[in-house]
Design a protein around this nucleic acid. Structure first.
Lengths: 141, 141
DNA sequence: CTATATGCAAAGTATTTGCAACATT
DNA sequence: AATGTTGCAAATACTTTGCATATAG
């Protein structure tokens, strides 16, 4: 066996499309849907099949290499993880600008709420939305 | 003009299907997807078109007569509102049992976080998941 | 060479919409 | 009678899957 240690991942072939997607994600700050990423890849010349984009994003997300976020429309958005561990997002509903936030406040609050109701293994999903200052000034409400 | 006051709602006809749906919702404690409700209506003899179920649920939700919740699968679930105002849910991932929770803690926390980052008109989505005590005891992890 | 990855198109879900028939008001 | 409502089917939108082909290892 190779000197790889305990990684049991069967195989992870470094294909052109995987590299292209990884590179794109690394250079992207905001969340992007599979479709958006697919379009951007195409625009960048490195066309990748839509199905491949979906499959790759999924596997990356499973390996915690990506953050996922479900939009209000029910679409899933992905972004390269910038922060380790559990955290949430503050998303601008106009431009999509995102700030990662992580607060022990909510963590402990949800944990105690769950405990108070006899719930075990609590976890939660939280996203905060709003209009960032820039967009706010651009077009006053 | 009628003596209706300021309600600008054009008209809200009391149809058989609306009543059926309302009744079903009133007697349902947990969240249900449009499909589930549609099936239950059919099972109960009061068949209602799926499109109508969707349309009616949507309008009820818009009028804050229903709570909505997006499942991990991207499906939308509805439930008759038991509590007024903004609140969240504690959902059992095994049986679906739900507890409504409302915490000023999170509200103020998200508001200050948003403000700290220059975000305006903040709002948020939060759901807490876990295994309720009953399910927990039924099949120890 | 062999197993995994890709691409395309077809299949699946969940939800919306067009439109003629219909029922509440 | 007039307008909101319903049902059905077709249309959308997002995502998944089957399968033959290409390719990393």
């Amino acid at each position: 066996m190779t000197a790889q240690g305990e990684s049991q991942t069967p195989a992870r072939r470094v294909t052109r499309q995987r590299v292209a997607l990884q590179t794109l994600l690394d250079s992207t700050v905001e969340f992007r849907t599979a479709h958006q990423l697919h379009d951007e890849l195409r625009a960048g010349g490195a066309s990748v099949g839509l199905a491949t984009v979906y499959r790759t994003l999924q596997s990356m997300a499973e390996d915690d290499e990506l953050d996922t976020l479900r939009t209000g429309d029910g679409e899933v958005s992905y972004r390269a993880c910038a922060e380790q561990g559990h955290h949430h997002h503050l998303v601008c509903t106009r431009c999509g600008h995102t700030v990662e936030i992580g607060g022990s406040t909510v963590e402990s609050w949800t944990n105690s709420i769950a405990a108070a109701h006899g719930f075990h293994e609590p976890h939660h999903e939280l996203e905060v939305f709003g209009v960032c200052d820039n967009c706010w000034n651009t077009s006053a409400d």
